[in-house]
Amino acid sequence: MRRTFGRALAATLLVMVLSMADWAAWLGWDQHMDELPDGSVRGPYEAWQVIGLVGVLLVIGVVVARRVSAVAAVLGATLGMTAAAAYDWSDDASGLWVIGAGLVMLGTFVVSLFVAVLARFVRRPAH
């Protein structure tokens, strides 16, 4: 029992750190808004950055859910993404970063739970 708990805790922490590194690699470096010709702004993230972030997170989640624990995959991803978003956005003076970080937490939890359950319980076809 102790060995299993320790392994799951280590996996949770690893997924958390990898999730934060994933955020930093794909989104953390891009902090400027793009001004469009009509004067409006968009950004700071492009679609390809978010797709890359989610793709790497999916791979991490599937591997950990299949090999160690679905709970570790879900908790680690949720905590890591939430911490990274909160850190990245906390300089927003309006205070709306709290709502954004909460939405990141909710979205990451729901999607990672779905992915982890599928990864854990869907069996590969026999050869």
Rank of each mutant, 00 (worst) to 15 (best):
T12W: 08
Q31R: 15
A11H: 05
V122S: 00
D88Y: 13
A70V: 03
L103M: 15
V54I: 15
P44L: 10
A65E: 08
P44F: 11
M1T: 11
S19F: 11
L53Y: 15
L113E: 05
F121V: 00
G43S: 07
A21Y: 04
A84K: 04
A21C: 10
S69D: 08
A24E: 14
G55E: 02
L9P: 02
D91G: 15
G80T: 04
S112K: 01
D34C: 03
V41P: 01
V74E: 05
T82L: 09
A73L: 06
L118T: 05
V62A: 11
V63K: 02
D88M: 04
A101C: 08
V111T: 13
G28K: 08
Y45T: 03
V68D: 07
S40N: 13
S69R: 06
S94F: 04
W29A: 09
S19L: 03
V54N: 08
Q31A: 09
V71H: 05
L13N: 01
R124D: 12
E35I: 13
D88S: 10
A116N: 02
G102A: 08
D88H: 14
V117D: 01
R66V: 07
V110F: 12
A72H: 09
R7K: 11
D22T: 15
G39Y: 12
V98I: 15
D91L: 11
A85E: 07
V59T: 09
P37Q: 09
E46D: 12
T78I: 11
G6F: 14
Y45M: 09
A116Y: 04
L106Y: 06
A93R: 10
Q49I: 09
V110P: 02
F109K: 03
L118N: 01
L14W: 05
R66H: 07
A70R: 09
T108G: 02
L103K: 11
L103D: 07
L106W: 10
A24H: 11
A93P: 12
Q49A: 07
R120G: 06
V122M: 02
A83Y: 04
V104K: 04
I60A: 03
S69V: 09
D34N: 13
V111G: 02
M20K: 00
A77P: 00
A119M: 05
A47P: 06
M81V: 00
F114D: 02
F5S: 05
S19D: 09
S69T: 09
D91E: 13
A119R: 04
L96W: 15
R124A: 14
A86I: 06
G43F: 10
V63D: 01
L14Q: 03
L53I: 01
D34S: 14
T4V: 14
I60V: 15
I51W: 11
A72G: 12
W89A: 06
H32Q: 13
G107T: 05
L36G: 02
R66S: 08
V41C: 08
G80F: 06
R123H: 12
W89L: 15
V62H: 03
R42M: 15
L13R: 02
A85N: 10
G107W: 06
R3W: 09
A8E: 13
W97R: 03
F114T: 14
D30H: 14
I60K: 02
P125G: 00
V62C: 05
A70N: 01
M16R: 01
V117S: 03
R3A: 13
V71A: 15
M105Q: 01
D34Y: 15
Q49V: 06
Q49K: 11
L57G: 13
V110Y: 03
S94V: 01
M1E: 12
